[in-house]
Design a protein around this nucleic acid. Structure first.
Lengths: 338, 338
DNA sequence: ATGAAAGCGCTAACAA
DNA sequence: TTGTTAGCGCTTTCAT
């Protein structure tokens, strides 16, 4: 029933065509030491003639697959920055990058990635258990994105949520805001003490409010799940308050976009300040004009990939890299009078 | 130098622990015929105890890897629709989806994906040679996205560029526009006769203008490469014309966003009509409010994945699926008076 | 119903 | 410098 699939050319076919051993071919394709120019030439000719391509599966079984995987919980604009950075860092190496969108909780996805087809893993998985990750890192090199835990077994690349959030809060205080609310991710990823980026931003938000003597005015709205509709829902709850906020700090740009949408829908665009996080390109769009914090997404991706390559090359000591954050003030705050 | 990586549990370890043969374990994990309940139970217990996970590489060497790959030339908002659809279609099957961002021209990327770690390929690759694709499809099941060529060897999933573009043009004509320009992708992917979606949209644009007797007013601005800056460049060229267009048809929403940005930058927001394509979620944002054509991106991804699974299951006849298109008229056109 | 054994395509010792 | 050989972990006949 199944249609005939052409037989793949194997290393043996090449060896036969070139009149050499398979080991010789293997050495040629790996640029290993100990091949005469003459042999290299014949082998390469045979490879060209036959259109030979080494089987990744067979390679992975014995050594490396030259695959790096970037696991992401969802495809978002910020993630495209990460991907772009990783791609750049890998360019010119023999490695290839693949992305694995995780389904819900990441254990299964990551585990199955580690099952033999990748030489290293970069993952965004704020909720997985550190102990589990250590075990994983014992099987395959791992770099974690957005985790603030520090361990010897895997590297981390994080943003400076502390500084970034403070930049935003101080900006809003300077503009005269006091009734500042926060719209963020679901409870699962913002649980106090969990150390996720969004939990941190939430904590800093609370801390800043407290330091300004505004604890009473703290208002946090979490969306119930990671969907745009739920972000709008959460915004609506804030807008429906007896005393609505004069400024809303969103967990990141994607959420901020929905906040802006609801504010606009309520006919109050330009009357409530809004901030995002990540400084994605839409934030800079003149029709959106969203104040945001840049945390070097592209550079984060590049660092993660570079660190992973170092791990694969043999580095055993952990490295932890933190991105710097900069405020990009735009009309969504500067154009709003309290 | 390299740190010690824990030895992975193999099928032999499980067999030993359960006191059975490796073949028996293999049968259990594949749900193959011929295992007694008693043996199944013991084997599954051993698997649980040891935390055994089959090696994908070894599997791929003999049979299937249960990996499907979606190759994409760039990570865009529209692509996230495709990914979402594919993910849904695959959910519940033993297959896992990975994405492979191609670097420039797609041959190398696709080829290397086919080298053994995937059971099937979904690819967005408008420029690769059909003959090459046929050869590829002879090695591994393939579904192509956005290709209008019809072949027996691989399946295709495309949008109805013809109908979609006509919807937009008629909409603009109805609103009274005559001086309508088109901003689109670089020459490489819009070459007349190449059959790519953007080449098609360009041709239909020309045809519609001709049918309306407006051939003289045709204005096409291609961005020189796939970057946002270049899209703004292209827009600027149109705005600088002695008689600028009253409406601009963008190749897709991402380009339209940049068109809107430049129009806004030039202080002419609301005075030039703009249309996009793909109906990405930003188009519906009230601050963007972009007229666009929906071509069922999620459904396209789901169809592609479903068709790929069918191919893997043995279907040998080609299937070609075309999405329907619907116009979503919004303020970027309806709010503009000619 | 179960197990023995032969590979899948490649890499890496080790011999020659 | 080159070739021989022994597996890597799994699936798949083919005996039992």
């Amino acid at each position: 029933m199944s249609i005939t699939r052409g037989r793949a050319v194997t290393i043996s076919d090449v060896a036969r065509a070139a009149g050499v051993s398979r080991a010789a071919v293997s050495k040629v394709i790996r640029n290993a030491y100990g091949v005469s120019p003459g042999m290299r030439e014949r082998v390469e000719a045979a490879i060209g003639d036959l259109g030979y391509r080494p089987s990744i599966a067979a390679r992975a079984l014995r050594g490396s697959s030259y695959r790096l995987v970037l696991e992401i919980p969802y495809v978002s604009v910020f993630m495209t920055q990460i991907v772009e950075g990783a791609r750049r860092a890998i360019a010119g190496t023999p490695y290839q990058l693949v992305l694995a969108p995780a389904e819900g909780i990441e254990y299964g996805t990551i585990d199955s990635l580690a099952d033999g087809i990748v030489d290293g893993i970069i993952a965004v998985a704020p909720l997985v258990d550190p102990a589990w990750l250590e075990e994983l890192a014992g099987r395959v090199p791992v770099v974690m994105l957005g985790r603030h835990d520090r361990t010897e077994r895997y590297d981390t690349v994080v943003g400076d949520d502390h500084h970034g959030t403070r930049l935003l809060m101080e900006h809003l205080f300077t503009l005269g805001h006091r009734r500042i609310a926060h719209v963020t991710e679901p409870e699962t990823v913002t649980r106090p003490g969990s150390g996720t980026p969004h939990a941190n931003r939430l904590e800093i938000y609370r801390a800043c409010m407290a330091e300004a003597g505004l604890t009473d005015l703290v208002q946090v709205a979490r969306r119930r799940e990671t969907s745009r509709d739920e972000a709008r829902e959460a915004t609506d709850r804030l807008l429906a308050l007896p005393e609505p906020p004069t400024a809303i700090v969103a967990g990141h740009d994607d959420i901020a976009l929905e906040v802006l949408a609801r504010i606009t829908g309520a006919g109050r665009h330009g009357r409530i300040a809004v901030t995002g996080y990540d400084n994605t390109h839409v934030a800079a769009h003149p029709l959106i004009d969203l104040t945001s914090v840049d945390q070097q997404g592209v550079e984060m991706g590049a660092q993660a990939a570079t660190m992973l390559l170092e791990r694969i090359a043999g580095r055993a000591e952990a490295r932890h890299w933190m991105a710097t954050t900069t405020l990009h003030a735009r009309g969504s705050t500067t154009g709003v009078t309290v």
